[in-house]
Design a protein around this nucleic acid. Sequence first.
DNA 1: CACATCCATGCACACGTTAACAATAGTCTT
DNA 2: AAGACTATTGTTAACGTGTGCATGGATGTG
Lengths: 334, 334
Amino acid sequence: MSATIKDIAKLAGVSHTTVSRALNNSPLIQEETKERIRIIAEQLDYTPNYNAKSLVLDRSYNLGLFFTTLSNGTSAGFFYEAIRGVNSVIRDRYQLIVKGIDDYTSFHSITKKSFDGIIIVSQSDDDGPIIEHIANKGIPLVVLNRPVDTPGVLNVLSDEEQGAFHAGAFLVNQGHKKIALIEGRKGFKSAQNRKDGFERAMEHYGITVPDSFRMPGLYDLESGHKAMGQFLSLEERPTAVFCCNDEMALGAIKAVFEAGLQVPKDISVVGFDDTVFAAYVTPALTTVRRPIEQISEEGALRLLGNIENKLNETEQVLLRTELIVRESVQPLHA
Amino acid sequence: MSATIKDIAKLAGVSHTTVSRALNNSPLIQEETKERIRIIAEQLDYTPNYNAKSLVLDRSYNLGLFFTTLSNGTSAGFFYEAIRGVNSVIRDRYQLIVKGIDDYTSFHSITKKSFDGIIIVSQSDDDGPIIEHIANKGIPLVVLNRPVDTPGVLNVLSDEEQGAFHAGAFLVNQGHKKIALIEGRKGFKSAQNRKDGFERAMEHYGITVPDSFRMPGLYDLESGHKAMGQFLSLEERPTAVFCCNDEMALGAIKAVFEAGLQVPKDISVVGFDDTVFAAYVTPALTTVRRPIEQISEEGALRLLGNIENKLNETEQVLLRTELIVRESVQPLHA
DNA sequence: CACATCCATGCACACGTTAACAATAGTCTT
DNA sequence: AAGACTATTGTTAACGTGTGCATGGATGTG
């Protein structure tokens, strides 16, 4: 059906070896021979058979992009940005194969032959086994978005501690002194990091946060709502609340409105994640944005570096988050 | 490195052909021989080399999922749902290769050898050339989301005319009689379909829409804002406005608020698309949802049918939209 | 002029798999 | 008991490409 190097060879009156070399721009072949062959290839609309190439070169030209799950729980914006970021660096050098980890019944088919490298956008501790499997098989790997301590694995993620620090600092700089915290789900590393950053900011500015200004949370709407309820029932209320994610912030805002108060006029609220809806709720939410697209770009870039230079660099890279200031924080003039 | 059928053959004391047949469960091989070979394969942790398989079987096990663009303009939710839908159908039978059409500098590398089939989620008329290229190459193809008249191409999309009809009918059923229309961008087929559906609903219920109740639009925030401005300046205002997409609806709502009026109390608004933010704006937008996930499922299913049965069914499938009722429409009691 | 050197190309095989055809042994038929 | 048929396995080539080694011609050198 489609032309092969042998067809070209016949027309050019050379061996298929020469054609192969010419099309790969080998220095062994005379320049004019190359040119002649290139022209014939063009005329025949020749495209190399990548399956054959793969077989002999032992490369697949495939890059795996695996998400914890495709079916549920991954936010659309997150997903989109991750694919965009990776795609922007690989362009036409590799094919991007998108998969959900939970679609695998067995990791058996994940081999060095079928993937030149793999990018895991990890959103759960359950991804441990697949990470280990891939590392064991010796496939170049980068894990994004979640800290991971398997040795020999590249790891790129956002510096959430720093992001939370900035959010806290911002509140202080806006004149707030009575600042409360709604924590993330216990056991999640992100929850710990965000809390740590917040605490560090408070310490740094010499602000003490009483125990009554700290409430646990579960990263969901309801727990944010409940926590804010508690704060509102205090004799001395906080003037600002830092919520460890946007969803809890939304719940918190709802609680404020239900109490007949206003955000940000009566209480300021800051979230974390810059979820898609953050810009559209009322008031638009001031929040911390994780640079997902940048993370995936950086991750893809370093992975390609490892693949193409046959290195095995294995550091952990932290990228800075960005504070997105919208309308949910009120400056307080002393 | 990794085991091949020849390694298995040696251990089993048979020829590699027998191993190949055994592992492919050929009826030619004795059941006990099969079992013996399977056990050895298991022990060696054998995985077939798909590149070799592909070469001889002339199949790639790859399915292309192409979007008009990845870099810009595709909405995240749309993107996510499309991938989910397709992914749920193919599972482990194929690898899903995600690409942006605008990343291709040449379609040259898109061949029958590298893709067993291709799904195009089309969002622009500019996709014409690639569709034709793929159809010419004889690669099984389905185009989603946008009507396409290239012969020999499967086409699955939502019935927007019907969706707009329902939206219009809903307004009438809520008691509205003075209903206005903000049209989509001229020249877009979707604009025509949505308008047609709306008109049909008005006719069906015997409601006349004066010319002053019709404004052109560009599918963007600003044109929606401007059009609503016009309606508000009329002596006799409409009580409800159907906007041909959500973004214009948003602009329209903004105009209402700026005029000191309320949605839906003073004017009801309906959108189209169920964009991600539709649920989060205030008031939450009543709108028409296109079943993207269902479209991509249906499309993938039919594509696989064509691939695996070597058919070339080539019909156009219209799927029903769904009216999502939220808070932007007020029932009007006569 | 004989020999070494270098440049451009070809030969033959390899990659891992499937499949057409051949071969062997056992079974059935008459 | 001979021939036909069947069931199971093996032999060999093929898919399209890349590469180590061999080859042959041109060029340079003493």
